[in-house]
Write a protein that binds this DNA or RNA. Structure first.
Lengths: 266, 266
DNA sequence: TGTTCTTATCGTCTTCTGATGTTATGTTAT
DNA sequence: ATAACATAACATCAGAAGACGATAAGAACA
């Protein structure tokens, strides 16, 4: 019953949507020519090239004379997971649930996930608050808010994630200790959380070490995926929050293995 | 002959300009009511309040029921120095001069100054490049560029400067060592560079320790001002760049005290 | 050298954000 | 309690930025 898993491409600018579709197209076909894409998407050559330039900047495809080829799937997936911005409703629900755990005066850490971003929108009323994050969109949003101490976690910029990472970021994280951590991952098995990229795992692990209470935000799509790198056992998290659309038979195994699972109401 | 020192309020959005003017008005009058401002600036009460909210967020004024009062002058000055964005032509000239010092492949550090920001616009052609900065507008611009490794220097966000600072930032800086540093200050005496805020001084000093070649960018207005905190002797900089409008009799004292001064052509 | 593919530049058009005022509701003082 | 002030919540409008394609210039390939 995984009814509306994808296909809901709302809330994305036209070019962004097309670029995501082009990315999918390229990944599917391995490599294609610019002209193929012109026909497939009904835009001019120029626009196709511009889209491809952007996708290349994000590390999703590689351009060569005569066409483009797909990059390792991991990159594509992290990127498209971000852009295709699926399950906004679910993420908003997760965010509302998470919000209830936060009290004024606390310090909160956020990773570079869209789930965390949804949470930022709810911060305005929970002031004062200290927020640490390495996610540029979150940073941008938070700069506009009053009574929130923003602690930006610097590092090497990744266009694919629109966030900062690498050693410098991990070091910045380790200098902190926050009350709460909200983070998300690419995939969740009954026992562990996984992520596509080792580089990201480095930072997330540091975050896990630097927070008192750790919360994992998981929309139901994540439970049916797998990913390369094992990040941490689910028991390392104090709470795992899933959305209401998650089938019961996917939740039970988590609990059986000792995870504390809460369900966020839509 | 300090002809056109201020009064050139170009290149600023209407609300930003009005806010700067309101800030000046408030500082001049000590404290005023919202209605006074309505009459003085010919906008609605609502708009006045919005402007004041923004100025308060930046730490320039303090609101209370019935009006607003000015905050310590230092805050006002750093802020207005930033916003009133004077001497753009000069800063562009300084940036062009600085640009000639950069070779592809180098690592460059930038502080949170508008002079540094002008430099960012010239980076696109000097790739590859590694750029480290704590200035949010610079970070935002750099994320869009390819072939530039962006190293964001995190820290505590300051709305007044739109940059990151404090201890976390200083630590991030100290973990680095770049080929070049371009920075600016509030004021320059014949022997020293000065800055208004101690907090900023902390970060700038760290930057000075973390770069091989240090370049100070100074538009001529800076030479006629003073500021509270002594940052460093001018001889700590490998080069001090001034703009062409700087009177000779202001340049000579710097050289007499051992500084290497270069003049940027407009 | 000619052909094909790519990039640069310009003008047009659309879209979107941001700024503003008005009205309505809430809050503080007297 | 009431008046003055402040904020919240729309609706409107304008300006700016972005998207796009056409054309022309440039670069790689064969």
């Amino acid at each position: 019953m995984t009814s509306d898993v994808d296909g809901d491409t709302t809330e994305l600018s036209r070019p962004a949507r097309r670029q995501a579709e082009i990315a999918a197209y390229v990944v599917e076909h391995g490599s294609v020519s610019a002209n193929d894409l012109v026909e497939a998407f009904g835009v001019s050559v120029m626009t196709v090239h511009r889209d491809l330039d952007e996708l290349e900047r994000q590390g999703v495809v590689r351009k060569y004379r005569g066409g483009v080829s797909a990059q390792p799937t991991s990159v594509f997936e992290s990127n498209v997971a971000y852009r295709l911005n699926t399950a906004q409703t679910e993420k908003a629900a997760l965010a509302r649930h998470a919000r209830a755990m936060i009290e004024p005066g606390m310090s909160v850490m956020l990773d570079d996930s869209t789930s965390a971003l949804a949470l930022v929108d709810l911060f305005e009323d929970i002031t004062p608050l200290t927020v640490a994050t390495n996610f540029l969109p979150a940073i941008t949003k938070l700069t506009a808010l009053r009574d929130i101490t923003l602690l930006a976690l610097g590092g090497i910029y990744s266009a694919t994630h629109d966030s900062f990472g690498g050693m410098p970021c991990a070091e910045a994280v380790e200098a902190l200790h926050t009350d709460l951590l909200f983070c998300s991952v690419s995939a969740v098995s009954p026992t562990h959380a996984f992520h596509q990229e080792e580089e990201i795992v480095l930072v997330k692990r540091a975050m896990l070490r630097s927070a008192k209470t750790k919360v994992l935000l998981v929309d139901h799509a994540k439970l049916q995926r797998t990913a390369l790198h094992r990040l941490a056992p689910l028991t390392d998290f104090d709470v795992v929050v899933v959305d209401e659309k998650t089938p019961q038979d996917l939740i039970k195994p988590l609990r059986d293995h000792g995870a504390t699972v809460e369900v966020a109401k839509l």
